[in-house]
Design a protein around this nucleic acid. Structure first.
Length: 618
RNA sequence: CGGGGCGUAGCACAGCCUGGUAGUGCGCUCGGUUUGGGACCGAGAGGUCGGAGGUUCGAAUCCUCUCGCCCCGACCA
């Protein structure tokens, strides 16, 4: 490619809207331009990069037996209604109507569509396993698109789906994908980690998240340097020392605590308690989706129901863990939010600073009172009357604790001497607390946890039979019985790879592309186009390198050398061949973008030299 | 959804408070000098001041509405 005839609109200054480094460099290097919030046009250089990444994705998917499809991005609503996700997903899905006023949507993922093919065409266990994938655009109406290509509303994803006859088969397919992902990110030059992650409210028995460490990331990862344990904070646990409580009274004692509103207040209050001896009582509203699945009829309800969450005073709630715990209870929970002050008031008759879970009894008149009071709320769903159920979920660090202090459900009063298991009816014990950096590793004896920021670049799920059951995708087993296909789902965001590659490979001068995904293998920079000898030498080097099978960019613009060097650094091509004064001696300069070192190479040897460098791994 | 900020030339910004002929730098065009790390001199082109309505003799500037974008938080199966 000749730069003079190509569109590489580099910018000298940082665009005002860009905050993170990859966003700035994507714009400055002439890779992308914004069309709308979370919507970007990919210019020719970016397209070259994307194509290289997609080629790696294809090679590695094909290597594990994957077959490439191309499915529609436009979906009729019916298929999403079948799986229940039309209602479950909400505002994240782009929805539209066709001319006949039928509901449609733009696909945000393709479990339903692939499953629809599987259920029609896969009949026998003999046809399994199957590994199907595509590289295709996805649409998600993100609440907050941000950071250039990091969080988009339309983006390219490689999504793969595995279909197995049983869990053991899924385990093998999952492992294949895991290995493929390791090769893919490795080949793309990304430093990544595999972490335990929440499977989310949509179910699935296991999932691994692939993350790239970068301060621009939105995920927090806890990791142990001693044993390699790594987990998303949504899932991470730690090993805590046991606390020996003193023997308390036979029953809780109420005492006045005027003005005490927070854990901190109660620590300082005379006769109060240390944070680790307090019970923190939080009230959450849980969004529940109820699906009655009867033959020939479906009845979906979305409703909200309150839950009480108990933690140690010095811990904080990890909301995803709460949601996961509620899902494990079989509650069909799809979301949680903190209760509003007026909701808390109505439920407890006390304000947030004075709450406690002692003697919450579902069958007494308190529930009647709650029901009456909730019914008076404006904007409260009618459904709530049928489902008021003050579920109490407690963090397992509270197990066996006694002589604790907590709110008395009366403003300005607390209870001391509370024995958690004796005095509180707890519906569910769960791991709910968020871990903190510096706590002990849950896996090994010696390590402590470090917490760093990272961005999600891939996610693999064991879906199980969620979609095959709801959509009726079954095969016959050897003994002739229908069994739901056991599925897995595996995604990689192409733009996320681009973003992570830049975040991890740049310096003050610009991008430093990993060789494998660089838009060009090398750039030939002619320092002065007015010098015929340099011009001709550059042209010959360009053609020779091309003939050797390399992707070459020839900077033949009528610009000063300094401008060309700056631009070459900015767009991040791994090797620069500078055609300058020493051409008279048959010598050119070979500059390594990453190490910033240069060597003089004889013109006659430049092709073989660049070839060996460009092909030598990362 | 809550909070904050910003829309003026291709890009980055000033002008707005205190209404009176729309500016600066970079980029772009032309001429000249330069030519290895974002050159210099000279001459130019380029703007419905996001949109609509209002106040006023007069609005980029004041008021109302609206659209869009960015950031923080919430949220993100």
């Amino acid at each position: 490619m000749r730069w003079s005839q190509n569109f590489i609109p580099t910018l000298r200054e940082d665009p005002a809207d860009a905050e993170v480094i990859s966003h700035k460099l994507l714009l400055r290097a002439g890779l992308i331009r914004q069309l709308g919030s979370g919507i970007y046009s990919y210019l020719p250089m970016a397209q070259r990069i994307a194509l290289k990444i997609m080629q790696i994705l294809r090679e590695e998917m094909n290597r594990i037996g994957g077959q490439e499809f191309y499915l529609p991005a436009l979906h009729p609503a019916e298929i999403w209604k079948e799986s229940g996700r039309w209602d479950a997903i909400g505002a994240d899905m782009f929805r539209l109507k066709d001319r006949k006023d039928a509901d449609m949507c733009l696909g945000m993922t393709h479990e339903e569509i692939f499953t629809a093919i599987a259920r029609h065409e896969l009949r026998s266990y003999k046809q399994l396993p199957q590994v199907w994938y595509q590289i295709q655009v996805k649409f998600r109406d993100e609440p907050r698109p941000k950071s250039g290509l990091m969080r988009l509303r339309t983006f390219i994803m490689k999504d793969a789906y595995s279909f197995d006859v049983d869990a053991a088969g899924l385990d093998r397919s999952f492992e294949d994908q895991r290995e493929a992902y390791k090769r893919i990110f490795g080949r793309c030059g990304i430093q990544f980690a595999i972490v335990e992650a929440s499977s989310g409210a949509m179910g699935g028995s296991a999932s691994n998240e692939f993350v790239a460490r970068t301060d621009a990331g939105e995920d927090l990862i806890a990791t142990c340097s001693a044993c390699g344990y790594a987990a998303n904070l949504e899932k991470a646990t730690s090993r805590l020392g046991l606390i020996k409580d003193l023997v308390g009274p036979d029953a809780p004692e109420e005492f006045p605590t005027p003005g005490v509103r927070t854990i901190e207040d109660l620590i300082k209050f005379p006769g109060g308690a240390k944070a680790e001896n307090q019970i923190k009582t939080l009230v959450y509203m849980v969004t529940v989706q109820r699906m009655k699945m009867e033959l020939g009829s479906r009845d979906d309800h979305i409703l909200e129901t309150p839950a009480i969450v108990l933690l140690r005073g010095d811990d904080h709630l990890q909301e995803t863990k709460l949601l996961d715990a509620l899902v494990r209870m079989g509650s069909f929970a799809i979301g949680v939010r903190p209760a509003r002050a007026e909701e808390i008031r109505a439920l407890f008759g006390a304000n947030a600073g004075s709450l406690g879970a002692v003697k919450i009894n579902r069958s007494n008149e308190l529930i009647q009172k709650i029901r009456r009071e909730i019914a008076e709320f404006p904007n409260t769903s009618d459904y709530i009357l049928d489902t008021v159920d003050l579920i109490v979920v407690a963090d397992q660090t509270l197990r066996g604790r006694r002589n604790m202090t907590t709110g008395a459900n009366k403003d300005d009063h607390h209870l001391r001497g509370v024995d958690v298991e004796r005095d509180i009816h707890i519906d569910r014990w769960a791991d709910l607390r968020g871990v903190n950096a510096g706590e002990s590793c849950p896996r090994c004896e010696s390590g402590t946890l470090d917490v760093y920021k990272a961005m999600e670049i891939g996610h693999i799920f064991k879906l199980g039979t969620k979609y095959s059951e709801s959509m009726g995708a079954t095969v016959l087993t050897p003994d002739g019985k229908p069994t739901p296909i056991v599925m897995g789902s595996y995604g990689i965001g192409v733009e996320r790879i681009i973003t992570a590659a830049i975040e991890q490979n740049h310096d003050e001068n610009g991008i430093i592309w990993p060789k494998s995904i660089s838009p060009f293998d090398c750039i030939v920079t002619v320092t002065n186009m007015k010098d015929a000898a340099l011009r001709e030498t550059g042209d010959k080097a360009y053609k020779d390198l091309q003939r050797a099978g390399l992707d070459v960019l020839l900077d033949d613009r009528d610009e000063r050398a300094g401008v060309k060097f700056k631009d070459a650094d900015l767009i991040g091509i791994p090797y620069r061949i500078t055609i300058g004064k020493k051409v008279a001696d048959g010598v050119v300069e070979l500059f390594d973008r990453k190490t910033k070192t240069s060597e003089e190479v004889k013109l006659s040897e430049i092709v073989s030299r660049v070839q060996s460098l460009a092909l030598a791994g990362l």
